[in-house]
Design a protein around this nucleic acid. Sequence first.
DNA 1: CTCTTTTTTTCGAGCCTCGAAAAAAATAAT
DNA 2: ATTATTTTTTTCGAGGCTCGAAAAAAAGAG
Lengths: 411, 411
Amino acid sequence: MTVGIRHDDLRRRNRAMVISAVRRAGQPSRTDIAATTALSPSTISAITADLISEGILVESRAGDAPAARRGRPQVAVRLNANAATILTVVLSMNQLSAALIDYAGETIAEERRKLPTLELSREALVDETVGIVRRLIVAAPDRQPIMRIVLAVQGITDSNERKLLWSPITPHADIDFSAILEKEFGIPVTVENDCNMIAVGLRWRNPERYARDFIAVLLSHGIGMGMVLRGELFTGTQSSGGEFGHMIHRPDGALCRCGRRGCIEAYAGNYAIWRNAKGLPETEAVARDVTDEDIRALADVARSRPGPEREAFRIAGEAIGFGLGNLFALIDPAPVAIVGHGANAFDLIEKPMLDAIARTAGGVHSGAISFDTEPDEMPLIREGCAMRALTFIDQEVFSPAQTAAPGRIVA
Amino acid sequence: MTVGIRHDDLRRRNRAMVISAVRRAGQPSRTDIAATTALSPSTISAITADLISEGILVESRAGDAPAARRGRPQVAVRLNANAATILTVVLSMNQLSAALIDYAGETIAEERRKLPTLELSREALVDETVGIVRRLIVAAPDRQPIMRIVLAVQGITDSNERKLLWSPITPHADIDFSAILEKEFGIPVTVENDCNMIAVGLRWRNPERYARDFIAVLLSHGIGMGMVLRGELFTGTQSSGGEFGHMIHRPDGALCRCGRRGCIEAYAGNYAIWRNAKGLPETEAVARDVTDEDIRALADVARSRPGPEREAFRIAGEAIGFGLGNLFALIDPAPVAIVGHGANAFDLIEKPMLDAIARTAGGVHSGAISFDTEPDEMPLIREGCAMRALTFIDQEVFSPAQTAAPGRIVA
DNA sequence: CTCTTTTTTTCGAGCCTCGAAAAAAATAAT
DNA sequence: ATTATTTTTTTCGAGGCTCGAAAAAAAGAG
């Protein structure tokens, strides 16, 4: 922050800016790029010429809307899909998936598998992860070199984005996935929190709604959160942070999976809804593995008649509402996306949630709050990972600090 | 964010960087500046020459430590105290103060007065503010033009930093102090939250401890908070945000001044401590104006023997602890400064506070948490305001976007 | 009084962006 | 069919900025 700007930074940053503009616009003309970056046409001309000669961009003559206008037609440029390849891995409860993605963001190959994450040994979990990566790499020999791996995992990651510090999906803590995978494959690896990737994915998918400030809440086994503030992904100072689900809703209240008492998750997680619906004591852990199917069944009952099921969803909505209200007290109201299977029961939790928010400081500008739901979180996580990896390539590899981009020129 | 960097931005930013380096270092040599900014000696030479000729910096031959070293002695540069003048105003409960500050940050003149803010009409409150500013300006005719006014006020301000949206010190809401003062004096005005200025002041005073991430909690009539994350002051998306005191500690719990139930302030504010110590019902407002003196007396009793007074402080500590723990769940542990008169009772609240934090997700890395106390908040707020105003001058006036700095050259 | 050391300035080279003008590539008009 | 018009893109020179190398400046050491 205290460091001056050197002359070569200029070109570096403007290169990254042009790449970013192309990534967002898809097939912009040079004029379009000049408009969005506020750089002069001459500068854009020079930079795009460089990027094309380096194989990062390609011209695609067929402008999507030639529209028979007068004048020299625009020549669209787009990302060269072959300029780079990245790999995403998503590790979540009982599920492991990976995908090979080209520079334009299209999926080249994919693999998904079920595995009992809670029961696997540390080594077995690591081996599964290494294995799925290896299979994808081996299956695409023409896609070498792969330039980046991004692994999203449900749990707390460190702020260097290298380790899984703690996760509800495995009893093992402090797994240095970056070191392991980098040693194995020689490719830079980033480890990310799944909800943070959901936030990145949401912004990519709908930049109108999810722009400068928004919140993504994942309702699943546990409660996760990702947040973008002032256009930047919010993280903790030492970890991925944003442990919304473990903010205390009621001091010394219901027992949480994490061992503490009164966490939001202990009222709104799958197991908590089950516990309340079945009238089990809230001071005791839930032995049963509560599935999405269980929750769906409870929701059906809750919709059909008043009773403990409906009350369980009310309690869940209330806990989330107070949590969001407290968050709004800190950051002010912002658009919220309710993601994950729990979004299917949003009709049951919405009213108690809004009632709770209205009882908090965040309820003052409740008009500014709006909710959207997305029951399937996996595609969002994958898209978020892909964007994270591609943004890294755009900035660090194709707009590097020192010499000209060493990126392989691929036809 | 999406906008490219132009060529003239370069010099602008590097100018600001040099000024900032001088402001932080005090009396650095050109070599020192080159080291901290990572710019070349030639560039620093050129920029400092400009700044000196514009009267923003001055050489001060008497290097503070000539130290009889070999070689050409360093020539220190420092800020020209006469380069600009700014004005700070602090409006808090029953108190209004203002100060005229030179470009080096030294106070030129000051005025403080008591006034019953809660009882004043909107017009009277505005008139008092205009009056104190006018008196300071009139009393220093040689200090024209004053380049910036920063007003810190206890309460919620808007994110454009122009209005007081709501405040506990007055029943009147939505006071556009910026518009009023700018119309009156023709000087740009910024309206800030007092706790945010405390955070800025803390960083200025002790940059070692209060660096990239820290939290300032003001314990007074109410509970306020200012926070710096990743080196930047944290604010809400639409307001000053950080309404820590109005996060809900216990849903539907004790009645808060704000009219809601269960806010942290309703357990830890002066009036809440009084209410609990005197055994008054927590569902009723406190009629009495609880003073710092009252709290001091309660604290003395609490220290001398067990009883409701000690319990009241325990409850306050617990509420703050759960609040901080929830904050730490979001941002991870960070150094905390307990500011304001409540810091005098820190010995009473520390233990219950730490106990509460240990019961939250923030307690996991409790080793990373450290507390410091500062009972007198007013000097910090003033310093924060001064720094805010001076930083603005450094960046916007003396490193302007377009033409060369129009700053008056003052000998 | 000369040599050494350190700081600061000077000067030319190399980039970068910009504006203006030219070139390119299409449609519209004659 | 040819010329005029319009819009996009490239070219080219000007102006700024930072940098490195060398020179100048300003001291103490010998």
